[in-house]
């Protein structure tokens, strides 16, 4: 019963969602769809609580056991509980300027810094990785050179053919490859969803099968 009940609940909820998403019809179909949407949001909010408990346990364990880089776990916990305390006791209103400060003065600059440093890593990685080791690596190298020149005004200045070649790479081989990946991933998603619905995939219950 411990296993059967969650599987049955998952199957019923999943089937209702699929039916109400793919079919329109009587008014109740839309009502059920809207109601399930609210349940999803509520479940998501509840999961945040589970996440907090889990994160505290994992990092608490790392700190007490003095595992490698345990001091970063202290930073993670202080940040998480600091923001929670700030939100619950100090800035109860979502329009409190403190939240704006958190985002615009701390998160936004850190986010932008991390992202902008990528250019240096990509430059260094391109220098070391793009070598004419074999025919496949050479094709990759030539494509990369065309794309790098073709997507900036410098390429058109050198030759009008370069942007045309870049557009062809983007529109033909790239689209063919990306479409294959996207369709493959979609089928994979459908297969996984079916496995979850019929109870073959039970990872969400804590098991491995």
């Amino acid at each position: 019963m411990k296993k059967e009940l969650p599987i049955a609940l998952g199957l019923v909820a999943g089937l209702i969602w699929i039916i109400t998403t793919y079919f329109t019809g009587p008014r109740w179909v839309e009502t059920v769809h809207q109601e399930l949407s609210k349940w999803y949001q509520l479940a998501g909010a509840y999961m945040v609580m589970v996440g907090v408990v889990n994160l505290t346990r994992v990092h608490g364990h790392r700190i007490t056991q003095k595992k490698k880089d345990w001091m970063y776990s202290i930073v993670a916990l202080v940040c998480m509980f600091g923001i929670m305390i700030f939100g619950i006791f100090i800035a109860k209103d979502s329009n409190n300027p403190g939240w704006k400060t958190f985002y615009s003065q701390i998160i936004a600059p850190m986010n932008a810094t991390v992202y902008s440093t990528l250019v240096f890593y990509i430059a260094s990685a391109a220098y070391r990785a793009f070598r004419i080791r074999n025919s496949q690596a050479t094709i990759l190298l030539v494509s990369a050179l065309i794309m790098m020149l073709g997507r900036v005004p410098l390429g058109a200045m050198i030759s009008p053919v370069i942007p045309q070649l870049a557009d062809w790479i983007l529109n033909v081989p790239n689209v063919a490859g990306m479409r294959g990946i996207q369709i493959g991933a979609a089928f994979g998603g459908i297969a996984t969803a079916l496995r979850v619905l019929v109870g073959i995939e039970r990872g969400y219950m804590g098991g491995t099968e």
Partner: peptide, 24 residues
Amino acid sequence: GMDAQSFAHALIILFIILGNIGYI
């Protein structure tokens, strides 16, 4: 930014060419 991106790409290409000369 397009000027900056153009010259940054040119520099990366230069390094890729140098890297391949060194490799050969």
